[in-house]
């Protein structure tokens, strides 16, 4: 079931990301959509903290995919620069593996992404306020969403 969470500032984004990050499992997929500056990379940095990734997680916009080692590997992807939805960037190699895939601007390559995933829309409501719409596709992701009610 879809869940909406109101966020007041950057710190709350990080807290929410950590809560979700703690529930991730090998092969988990998170897709992120939201305007420039909405906080997609900030959210991913929070997830990385939950996975005990110590390296700096910075924007993958130009390199498209960045990999990090942690409790689970993190594959941080960004489709911002992709113009052809079907361009083969080798993204499918990363799905169904042992790591976690986070895909920013996911809607630009949605046909390349497996159906089962946790989708998050970040809506800008004010300078620091954001509305997170969290939409689970598949049982495992429903479970993550339900857990968010209890934390």
């Amino acid at each position: 079931m879809k869940k909406e969470i109101q966020i007041k500032n950057l710190q709350e984004t990080t807290i929410l990301a950590k809560k979700i990050g703690k529930q991730l499992f090998p092969g988990a997929i998170i897709t992120l959509d939201g305007d420039l500056g909405a906080g997609k990379t900030t959210f991913t940095q929070g997830l990385a903290k939950a996975l005990n990734i110590t390296k700096v997680v910075n924007s993958p916009t130009f390199t498209i995919i960045k990999e990090y080692d942690g409790d689970l590997s993190l594959y941080h992807m960004d489709a911002y620069r992709i113009e052809d939805e079907l361009e083969d960037i080798g993204i499918d190699e990363y799905f169904f593996g042992d790591g976690v895939c986070v895909i920013e601007w996911a809607s630009k390559i949605i046909s390349q992404i497996p159906q089962e995933r946790l989708h998050i829309n970040i809506n800008v409501e004010s300078v620091t306020g954001r509305l997170f719409e969290i939409i689970p596709y598949g049982e495992k992701y429903e479970h993550i969403c339900e857990e968010l009610f209890y934390v």
Partner: peptide, 18 residues
């Protein structure tokens, strides 16, 4: 030293788009 978030060229491109 390195960037903790966006690279400088990326900031240019995104500001240009705005």
């Amino acid at each position: 030293g390195k960037t903790r978030d966006d690279a400088v060229g990326e900031a240019y491109d995104k500001v240009a788009r705005v």
